[in-house]
Design a protein around this nucleic acid. Structure first.
Lengths: 337, 337
DNA sequence: TTGAAAGCGCTACCAC
DNA sequence: GTGGTAGCGCTTTCAA
């Protein structure tokens, strides 16, 4: 392991008294080269700390053994990448991809996001792409998917969409959450989140559905924070309360939003869950640690990550995989009474 | 942007009626090619969705415009990569690296970890390496740093270490935390964490120092959970209480450990902070949301990420940068009374 | 100002 | 079984 810097295959070949071809074959475990020679070459390479140059290999083989993970950070904000949901998903993806012997190329996509996807594709940095969250990029995804197959997206499954998604049953999960609030006797349930983002839109749809099932009208328009961030949600909730909006429950489109609302509500002197019930979506670690612990809709991110990677590998082999919608489960805790 | 798949530079050259050399120069913004021609070529490339093949470019230039971020996952465990501290650091690194126009190659290092660092180096996948956490890899880092310069490590700064680290003042932070407990009248303070991990060892040193300053003996041996995970910490705390260990305070080596201890303590029917005070280290998001909110030592991870990347870039330019120790600040919340 | 040609380090074809 | 050779797509001399 005495790594002479910059040893290359030709050097190993010279030391072993064979050609580069043979070294290449030996290191690839080809049965063409005799076992003895193969072992000698392996030993020599190991002694010298020689490792195949990934760049040269990739160029020659026209593949990189690497998957890109792209994270569109939404709207016109350059917020740091600290959203707990994203981070959790990223962790699971790193595990799964590493386990399959691939590298992971991480790309944060910041506004203005022009042509980032075609560029990422054409740069040939990776063999396939996972995009976490549609954000505002539905159109870009549609366009790219028409020509580029090894692409999978975490997010909501929209009607007539041609790219492959993995995501939870946003409509069903949201319906269950809001129905739970209605059953608990809540009359004026506020939706907090921006329905323009596909996943959030589906959750808002579930919110409406639950009201219809109960023969109710959603009495309030949704509150739309400027971004999917904790601060924006906190401020939106605070402003709503200050404007003396009357309500007895909040359905936060994500846990980050719901927990922020929780704090704004407490800060305004309202008791949770007695005066206001709060429900979120995601079941990130924060949810069970909130005060009071947050009722929410659980998404199985580990399974989600597995599905994403699995589908992408199948696409790499030419299969035209369909989207996957995973069940989402209501987890009742104290914040909803 | 009508991306004909697989267009290469020669194709663009043919379409433009020039040679590949000229296209290369034009796209690189070379002043050698006339402004007019340069613009034509740019337009043509854009129309065709042509992007330079990163692999070929990297091979030719012998650099990748990519930094590796390696995460040793410690001990003999294949736990999923979900530690909030790591995730937060990763997010900041992604931001900083992206902002500097580099790609980020993420590598999770799982046991058995033989030669991962020399191999990562020799694979030439990236121009430099950031390692998050020394974990059990101090020796590997020492060995690699002797030959390979563009390497920086997040972690504790140990005596006579030859690799470049960025980290908080673990000793000072821990001393402040424990001194705070002693001032509050706590008599029997338990340390929860494994001092064999460099950063944790330094924090344990601070724990001892605070006792010495107060002319006290640490009355209890440290409790050593099997891993740096929430479950292991919870179990270690539970077992300690069940064995009727007597104590009135806990210093958790990380927030994840402290919050787990908090729960085990509450579950055992002990009141926090009345009967047992709890203090952590890191100030991750979880800390302020714990019940009661956790007193802890704040590390500025955003600044840490900036320092790491900045030092690495300076090393890429040949500078031999020294380590950086950042101040760590005690944040008093309710868990310590 | 431009183009031809060499070569980055590797793999795979083809001949022996 | 093994080695010579071509070529992956790009950048950069060097010569014109």
């Amino acid at each position: 392991m005495n790594s002479r810097p910059g040893a290359k295959m030709a050097d190993i070949a010279r030391l072993a008294g064979v050609s580069a071809s043979t070294v290449s074959r030996a290191l690839a475990g080809s049965p063409l080269v005799t076992a003895l020679k193969r072992e000698q070459i392996h030993r020599l390479a190991h002694e010298r700390g020689y490792v195949i140059n990934a760049t040269a290999r990739n160029l020659r083989l026209q593949r990189t053994q690497t998957l890109s993970v792209a994270i569109p950070s939404g709207h016109a904000t350059s917020q740091p990448l600290t959203d707990p949901f994203l981070m959790e998903m990223l962790g699971h993806l790193a595990d799964t991809i590493t386990q399959r012997g691939y590298g992971m190329f991480l790309q944060k996509v910041v506004p203005p996001m022009v042509d980032w996807l075609p560029q990422l594709i054409a740069s040939h940095r990776s063999d396939g792409i996972i995009v976490i969250g549609q954000s505002t990029e539905h159109a870009a995804l549609e366009a790219a998917a028409a020509r580029y197959k090894p692409l999978v997206v975490w997010g909501g499954h929209l009607a007539r969409q041609s790219y492959c998604t993995v995501g939870s049953d946003n409509v069903g999960g949201a319906t269950a959450a809001v129905a739970h609030l209605i059953r608990a006797g809540r009359q004026r349930i506020v939706f907090l989140g921006d329905p323009a983002v596909p996943e959030i839109g589906l959750r808002y749809h579930g919110y409406q559905l639950a009201h219809e099932c109960a023969a109710r009208q959603p009495v309030l328009p949704p509150i739309i924070p400027t971004h999917l961030t904790a601060d924006a949600a906190h401020e939106a909730m605070r402003a709503f309360i200050a404007a003396s909006g009357s309500f007895d429950a909040v359905f936060g489109a994500t846990d980050v939003i719901a927990v922020s609302a929780l704090r704004a509500i407490s800060a305004a002197g309202l008791a949770v869950p007695r005066e206001v019930a709060v429900v979120g979506f995601d079941d990130i670690a924060l949810a069970s640690h909130a005060n009071p612990p947050l009722t929410t809709v659980r998404q199985d991110l580990q399974r989600g990550a597995h599905e994403l990677v699995d589908l992408l590998f199948r696409r790499l082999e030419g299969e035209d995989t369909p989207s996957v919608v995973m069940p989402a489960e209501l987890v009742v805790r104290e914040s909803s009474g």
